[in-house]
Nucleic acid binder design. Sequence first.
DNA 1: CACTCCGAGAGTTTAAGGGA
DNA 2: TCCCTTAAACTCTCGGAGTG
Length: 254
Amino acid sequence: MLRSTFLHLPGVGPATEAALWRDGIRDWRELAEGAHPLGTSPAHRERLRAELAASEAALAGGDAGWFGRRLPAGEHWRVYSAFRERTAFLDIETTALSPYEGMVTVVAVHGGGATRSFVAGEDLEELPAYLGRFPVLVTFNGRYFDVPFLEATFPAFVAPPVHIDLRFLCYRIGLSGGLKRIETTLGIGDRTGVEGIRGLDAVRLWREYRAGSAAALERLVRYNRADTVNLEPLLERVAGDLVRRLLPPPLPSR
DNA sequence: CACTCCGAGAGTTTAAGGGA
DNA sequence: TCCCTTAAACTCTCGGAGTG
C-alpha cells in the first residue's frame, strides 16, 4: 500500500491520488516514469521526481518516520505492511483515566516476534528504551490515552514517529464501540483465560496485587497481553478493508 | 467519572489550465 | 504572456467517543 501512496507528495491530496489510481498509476515508479497530468511545470515536475526518489530511499533505508512526518495521522496505517517486523502493538493499564490521578501499572509491547510485559516497581523503567527500537506504534485510542499517559510518566518518552490509532480507523469502516465489542463483532482475537475482564477490573486487580496477591498480578498481565496481542489481527483486518475501499479493483492479470 | 484532539464539514487560499 | 475560471489543497471550528 505504501508504494501506491501519493498523498505524501507536495500538491497531492485525496482527489488527485484517487485520479492517479483511476488512470492506472499504482506505484511510485509508474508516476515517475509515465506520462501523467502532474508536473506540467518543469519546476514542479522536478520536485515530484525528487520526492519520489526520496520515497524509494526512505523505504529502502527503513525510515518509517520519513513517511510519518509527511502523511496525515489518519493515513499512518499505510506504512504498516512495509514495516511489519518493526511495528510495536502497545497497551497500558493504569489506576485512573488521567495521569494526574493515577499511575501506570502494567504495559505490554507486542512486536518483533516477541511479547514483553513491564510491571511498575519491577521493570517499567525499561519501557521507553525498549519501545524506542520500534518506529511504528499501534494502539487503540492511544493518541488520547496511552501516549499522553506515558509522556506524563516518563519525561524523556518520545512516541514512535508513526502511530496508528485503531480507534479512528475502526470508526471509519463503520465499527464503533470499544476494543472488546469490535473484537466480538469481527470474531477475532483470543481472550482465553481472561474472559469477562474489563478495563475497570485492571484497577481492582492492581490493588489486590499490592495487597499481596501474586495471582492478581498474573491475571492482570495476562489480560493486558490479550488486549495488546489482539490488536495485530484487528489491524490486519482493518488495513485490508481500507485498501479494498480505497484502491480501485486490481487490473485483470495478463 | 476527566481528558483529549481526531474527524467531518464549512470556509479560505492556492495552483492549474484554457482562452485571448 | 496575462487573466479568469475552476478544482483541489489547506485552515479553522466544534462535537464526540473511548480509555482504566
